[in-house]
Amino acid sequence: MLAKRIIPCLDVRDGRVVKGVNFKGIKEVGDPVECAYEYNKQGADEIVFYDITASHEGRGAILDVVRNTAKKVFVPLTVGGGIGSVEDIRAILRAGADKVSVNSQAVKDPQLIKDGADIFGSQCICLGIDAKKIAENKWTVYINGGRIDMHLDLIEWVKKAQDLGAGEICLNSIDTDGVRGGFDIPMLKAVTDAVDIPVIASGGAGSVGDFAEAFIKTDCSAALAASLFHFHELTIKDVKDDCRKKGIPVR
């Protein structure tokens, strides 16, 4: 049986790990290669690097991070953040990543999903989404790190992305992100019901039981967290032990 995945996310700026809380107040905490290696030892099923480097010139740093991580970490690596073209995707995959996560640029130009999937395969193309509730069972998609409301209906967007060839969706709820009260179950449920491709829950994990809750209440395939693992409040092993106790298949 397929295991539910637990995925730590490392926010990286200029080649160093940072984590914003609600996308604000960034604080530096370490070397991404070392962090990835540590998570790998704890049993991470996959590692996500989210590149928040602002300048175009600084973008090469993430490629070195991926290259060095791929030499000592043998689980899938995903890179997101600022991916704007097929060339960006190619460079990241060549550096040793297994998948890319496209977000804002895919909203502005959905063809990026199709081109990426056609050239590299759907399995490489994860669509990252930041969404916020506007009414009961209704959400809209935001871009630029949750700053700009595109007035695009979330459910329409995920269906379209699946049709274009996205292989996976990483769904971040702006409402629950940083609040640490658990994942956004209604939003996750709505998205997992709307598409067949795997959905990764993101935003809101605050305690060990939040992961199992997402797996029990929705059909999500994986759950992602950053700061919770990052500040050693919980290890990935703690989360998996809790899931196992509740009958959820984990590696």
Binding site: M1, L2, A3, R5, D45, S122, Q123, G167, E168, D196, I197, P198, S221, A222, P249, R251
Partner: peptide, 9 residues
């Protein structure tokens, strides 16, 4: 879902 993505026993 297809593709079959992830860790399986």
């Amino acid at each position: 879902p297809i593709p079959h993505i992830g860790w399986n026993e």
